[in-house]
């Protein structure tokens, strides 16, 4: 029996969340005395995984899998998992992993828990803590399958380096027959996506209009951060929907979340609460965001944000 991790990559490079998932898998393998087998699909250098403790790496390189299709990836991962005698399969919580996890659950007849925020409370029976009610609460879920799947929340367990000397095996996959074809992919290049970002800078209605968004963008580029916005800002078309975060938008689980001109409505906070450190800049000391934040500045964003950008640039250049 083995703990299996799928280590997600993009354009041949492993994602940060892949290293977190492997670290998590290592902890599970230690606790349950099992081998850790990591699956890599089209990553240029599967040996990079050796920094995080796998006992074995299965490397698939197949040009028919250059486009991500959930069904084909799920077919491949479930086939390899079965061969390795999977007991727990670990995935990250990226959009792609969340997309295929229910397919995998049915194919493997497995129990599934998404948004898992820590190592299991108990291994046998398998009990995990996961977030629910859009980050307003957690639940303890018992997984009752003979195989189970855990999707680890981004930034919840962290990356733990542990060198190992895994056997790296090249594996061929059986021919697949996708039901869905990828016609095109439209990806913003250069900018950081909210899901992958360590830092997210978010703007609300307090910024008055799209013409002022250079404040958010400049601050974001200074910090290498992703940009986000509140729901009304995207509803009014000031910013694209893909930036809308909160209960009905994208979830955010970054290390640092800076909210500027955002009031902190319950639906906004619900989606961003999983972020580790929250900073609010708002000219209204009564804004509810101050109750949820770690650090705050009561000030006009138009005065304070340019100063913050300038100071941060200076700080960065001295590092």
């Amino acid at each position: 029996m083995a703990i299996i991790v799928y280590a997600e990559s993009q354009n041949g490079k492993f994602k940060k969340s892949a290293f977190e998932a492997v670290s998590y898998g290592r902890a599970l393998a230690n606790e349950s005395n099992k081998n850790l087998v990591v699956i890599s699909i089209n990553a240029d250098d599967p040996n990079e995984l050796a920094n995080y403790g796998p006992d074995k790496v299965l490397s698939v390189k197949d040009s028919s899998m250059n486009d991500y299709t959930a069904q084909v990836y799920a077919d491949t991962i479930s086939e390899l998992s079965k061969k390795e005698g999977v007991s727990i399969l670990v995935l990250s919580s990226s959009a792609d992993s969340k997309y295929m996890s229910p397919l995998l659950a049915v194919q493997l007849g497995a129990g599934l828990a998404s948004n898992v925020v820590s190592t299991p409370i108990s291994i046998s029976p398998l009990v995990v803590k996961r977030s629910c009610f859009t980050n307003k609460a957690f639940n303890h879920t018992t997984l009752k399958g003979s195989i189970n799947i855990i999707c680890v929340s981004n930034n919840s367990y962290g990356i733990h380096e542990k060198e190992s000397r895994p056997e790296v095996v090249d594996v061929k996959i059986s021919k697949n027959n996708p039901k869905i074809k990828v016609e095109s992919l439209d990806k913003a290049t250069g900018s950081v996506s909210i899901a992958d970002a360590d830092i997210v800078i978010s703007g609300g209605r307090g910024l008055k209009g799209p013409e002022n968004w250079h404040l958010i963008e400049d601050l974001a580029s200074t910090l290498g951060a992703a940009t986000a916005c509140s729901k009304p800002v995207s509803d009014m078309g000031w910013r694209p929907h893909s930036e809308h975060v909160g209960q009905t938008g994208k979830p955010v689980a970054s290390n640092l979340y800076i909210a500027i001109g955002v009031s902190g409505a319950i639906q906004h906070l619900a989606g961003i609460n999983a972020s580790k450190v929250k900073v609010v800049i708002n000219n209204d000391p009564e804004a509810p965001f101050f109750k949820a934040a770690d650090y705050g500045i009561v000030a006009d964003a138009f005065d304070v944000v340019p100063k913050l950008i300038e100071k941060l640039k200076a700080f960065k250049s001295h590092q």
Binding site: S94, A95, D96, Y99, K179, I180, K181, V182, E183, S184, L185, D186, K187, A188, S191, V192, S193, I194, A195, D196, S242
Partner: peptide, 13 residues
């Protein structure tokens, strides 16, 4: 169309 991390993917089936 599917929203992905940082973009949009167009699919046919």
């Amino acid at each position: 169309k599917r929203e992905i991390d940082g973009g949009v993917e167009t699919l046919s089936c």
